[in-house]
Each structure stands twice: as C-alpha cells, then as structure tokens.
Design a binder for these strands. Structure first.
Lengths: 165, 165
DNA sequence: GTCAGTGCAAACTTTTTGCAACTAC
DNA sequence: GTAGTTGCAAAAAGTTTGCACTGAC
C-alpha cells in the first residue's frame, strides 16, 4: 500500500516536471521531441546522481530508448537551464542530479574510494541561503565535504596494525 | 615598506610549505627532486585558482622551468595528499588552489560568464566545520554558490529593456 | 516546406599510462 | 647499483562539433 502511494507520488513528480519542461520548451521556442521527454523521464527514474554514461545506459536498458551522446549533452543543457537538473563535478566526469522537489542535501565524498553519500542538513541550508551576498544573485549552491568514509577509516586502521606487527 | 613586509611574509610561507613538503616526502619515502620543489614554488606564487595549463605556463614563463604534464599531474597528487593544495572542479577542467595558511573562503560562480569570485565567511565556515557527521572523518570542504554576477545581471536587464522597446 | 533537432563520426581537450632514459639515494 | 622519477608520445576518457538526414511545426 505504502509502496503504491510512493509510486503514485513518483508519477506525480514525473508528470509535473514534464509539464514544466513542456512550458520551458514552448517559451524558448524549442521543439517537443520524443528524445527530450525520454531523457527527462529517465533522469527522474534515477535515484541519486548519475554520469552521462549511466544515463545513456538507463535509457537503453530500462526505457529501451537509444539516443546519441550529442542529443544527451544537448538535452541536459536545456534541463539545466530549466532548473530541472543540477550539475556536479566530483570525480573526473560530470555528475548530474534531478533537482525538482528534491530535499536539500549536501555531499560527503570519500577521497579514498570516491564514494559519494548524501547528508541532509536543513539548518546549514537555511544559513547558506540567507548568507549575505553583495552583487550576486544566487540560484543554487553545492557543498562537498571531503574526507574518509567509515569503511576506508577501518581499512586504514587494519593496514596500520599490520604494518606495526 | 608594507609591500616589503608582505613579500617577506610570502617568502616565509614558501619556506614553510617547502619544509612541510620535505617532511612529507621523507615520511612517505619519496625523492626530493628539483621538479617537485619548482612546482610547489610556482603554485605558491599564484594568487588564486589555476588550471594545469596555467601552472605549466607559470613554470615556463616565470620560473623558466620546463616539466612534462606527467610530472605535473604526478606532483599535484602528492601535494593534494600533503594537504598543501586543494582541487576544485568548476568549469570543464580541474582547478587547483594552494591551501596552506589560506583564509577560509567560498566560491561564487557566475553561470553566465563563468567568473569565479571568493566569498569570505567565517561564520559559515565554523558551522560547517562543527556540523555533525556520523561515520565520516572530514578533511576539508568546498562550497560553490552558483548564480548571476552583477555584471551579467545588468547585461540581462539591458537586454530585457531593449526587447520591450 | 522549413529549419530545429538528431545520429554519427571525427575532432578536441584533459588526464592517464607505458616505457626508455635519468638521477636521488 | 637500484628503484623511484621524469619526459615523451600514445592512449583513454569525456565532451564538442560538422554535416547529412529526419521529423516537429
């Protein structure tokens, strides 16, 4: 039952972003192509952040929809502009994330293994949003906290112990 | 006189990071090569953030020292590990920045023109540093605030006015 | 019918890698 | 002398671009 409700909500969001995107395309004189809607749908089916490759795979394997990389990059650009997607740059390749109705969260990035986890913190969010900024109109922000995750802390400890034996 | 003092302080910092690096190399069993020290020196001669290309140019033109890209990437890796340099990823290429005795600052990134400016904010810094994080050992963080800079806000306004005429 | 959008492949940019030569230890 | 480092060039990875074809309007 709860799962069903959750799925309905997810479909709601998908429909809403589709409407927002349609409106965006209309205002900016862009065409409504099946590729663009397929890409938007795929993105809003992915839970966390994703790379271009992952998005391409999602489309191909889950939605059985093949698009060229050119179109992918093209469409992401529109979605960024429409504020439906946000771009990150941890690691070596760009990472993207859907951002409509997403809870605010920050990113913990392990410099040992590259794992990215999310850290919700509303207080921090509020403070940053109300931070005084002269001569600058803020649209969004990203906070990346680098360090060592539990797993890698333990791995390091084991390594150290072994060395001292 | 003040300029002189400032220069002396700058030399002080250069010497200190040199010592830290020497110690780092010793502990980790790496060799002390002239390339490594030249790169460190070049980095601490650059004021803000820099790309690999800019660093290569700085070495070639200002310090008259030629190193291969392989060595540059190699050495930056050591400097990151030694916590003497921090890595950013705005734009398309990685940007680096010296971080010994740097005042804490955050980055305002204009999504129109790509300009990056620095925003000092110690309150924010304190709050982030004391933010509770389970199972994660923080080493450093980066806060990027995206939006539109004054120059581009004005440019937009002018464009809008022109349109409405 | 027109032209924005797409797919494809080639080009470009940034970073990584393999290997021979070099040099710090 | 040995093994870590360097330079070079080639390869890899990620992104952009040019061009002919397609399809939204």
């Amino acid at each position: 039952m709860f799962a069903l409700l959750y799925d309905m909500e997810k479909e709601d969001i998908k429909n809403t972003v589709k409407q927002i995107f349609t409106e965006y395309l209309r205002i900016n004189g862009h065409r409504k192509t099946s590729e663009r809607y397929a890409i938007l749908d795929a993105i809003y089916s992915i839970k966390g952040h994703f790379s271009m490759e992952a998005l391409h795979d999602q489309l191909l394997n889950e939605e059985h929809f093949r698009v060229s990389r050119a179109t992918l990059y093209n469409t992401i650009e529109l979605l960024l502009d429409a504020k439906l997607v946000i771009k990150h740059q941890f690691g070596n390749s760009s990472q993207y994330e859907r951002c409509y109705k997403m809870e605010t969260h920050h990113h913990l990035i392990c410099t040992e293994c590259g794992q990215v986890t999310e850290l919700p913190n509303n207080d921090l969010q509020r403070i940053i949003a109300s931070s005084p900024m002269k001569r600058f109109q803020m649209s969004h922000y990203t906070l990346y906290i680098y360090g060592t995750c539990r797993k890698c802390i333990n791995a390091k400890k084991r390594k150290q112990l072994k060395k001292n034996k």
